[in-house]
């Protein structure tokens, strides 16, 4: 049966489609939608007086949840501020969402939501007014900014407190208000500098949930700058490690946490004493790590371990697989290798 287009699409739907095509085309022309990078720099340097904060930094971060790690003074905040044009850099090139920071800084600012490390605020205004004003600064109309301020404040969990003045906010509430301000103009990339700083465990967990949701459910690219490794490990899937203004390491989080030594990790319920003796007797190198039994990988090691576990009535297997490291292990090993980082 032949069906003409007009019978399927109403005028409004056609108008919507036309608008969608226009927006996508505009995005494509600007290069943002096509870019697969959150940001990148080439030979990027920044001097504060005689102190080199960023040292010929060449780095690239994909449009994912990126953790920006490094000890204090590593250059994390300087990099973010330079990418947003808040401070100027001395040499090198940089792009954010595929846009050059020299030529398109206004557009970059419109497409990036930034939550600074400290709490910038106008204490005498309500959260609603503050977030709405930030929306207007990012180019939203007055009505749209107010509507989106309502939405984002609800989204971050400040719906009930949105008419309270910022001076009355606790640190946790202020972190959420900062996040709402960073999200109000619907950015493609959200940059959060120390988003869990000063939060209690419950507040920290809530904030990490929010960041995770932003990335996984709302499809935003996220950059989380933090010195709290656990936070980055929980919400990010790509890591950049900076030290003394240089790139120390970057890569996929899961690959980074995989143990490249090829050690097999075994966890059992029950008393493992006999099992350990038997595995040692079969010539396997055994190491105990906080209740886990790490076995050096050799030919057919998995089968040998399974046979011994099955033969031992005192234990039952809980986990058998590759040993993974924590981000802290990775970070410590990197920092140990670079003695001048701290």
């Amino acid at each position: 049966m032949r069906v003409s287009v007009s019978t399927i699409l109403t005028v409004q739907e056609l108008a919507f489609l036309a608008r969608l095509i226009y927006l996508k085309t505009a995005d494509a022309v600007r290069g943002c939608a096509l870019s697969t990078e959150s940001f990148s720099t080439q030979g990027f340097s920044k001097l504060y007086g005689s102190t080199l904060a960023l040292d010929n930094l060449t780095v690239s971060a994909p449009r994912r949840a990126v953790g920006l790690l490094g000890p204090n003074g590593a250059g994390k905040t300087t990099l973010i501020r330079a990418l947003l044009g808040i401070i100027s850099h001395n040499q090198g090139n940089g792009t954010v969402l595929g846009l050059d920071i020299k030529d398109s800084i206004d557009e970059i600012r419109d497409r990036v939501g930034y939550s600074p490390e400290f709490a910038p605020s106008i204490p005498s205004v309500s959260a609603m007014k503050y977030v709405s004003f930030m929306g207007k600064l990012s180019g939203l109309g007055a009505v749209e900014a107010a509507q989106r301020a309502h939405d984002t404040l609800h989204y971050v969990g400040l719906g009930e407190e949105r008419y309270r003045k910022l001076r009355e906010f606790s640190q946790g509430m202020m972190q959420k208000a900062k996040l709402a301000a960073a999200l109000v103009h619907d950015p493609d990339l959200v940059i959060l500098d120390e988003p869990t700083d000063g939060l209690d465990p419950a507040g920290r967990s809530q904030m990490l949930d929010l960041i995770e949701r932003l990335y996984k459910e709302e499809g935003k690219s996220v950059v989380v700058s933090s010195h709290l490794l656990f936070d980055v490990e929980r919400v990010c899937d790509w890591v950049l490690v900076l030290g003394r203004g240089r790139l120390i390491m970057s890569g996929d989080m899961s690959e980074m946490l995989d143990d490249t030594d090829g050690v097999l990790r075994l966890r059992v319920a029950g008393n493992p004493k006999n099992l350990i003796e038997k595995l040692s007797a079969r010539g396997l190198e055994i190491e105990l790590d906080d209740g886990n039994i790490d076995v050096s990988r050799t030919e057919g090691v998995e089968m040998m371990v399974l046979e011994e576990v099955n033969a031992d009535p005192n234990v039952s297997i809980r986990y058998l697989g590759r040993r993974t490291r924590t981000l802290e292990d990775v970070f410590v090993s990197v920092v140990e290798g670079e003695s001048d980082l701290e």
Binding site: R19, L23, D106, D110, K136, L137, S138, G139, L140, G141, E144, R148, H150, D151, T152, H154, Y155, G157, G159, L183, H185, D186, E217, E218
Partner: peptide, 20 residues
């Protein structure tokens, strides 16, 4: 309750620099 206020994409045209 929080999830009811999910994200809407902003598809309007942003105001010019003078308006800001």
């Amino acid at each position: 309750y929080v999830r009811r206020f999910g994200f809407r994409r902003y598809e309007g045209i942003r105001s010019n620099r003078i308006s800001r």
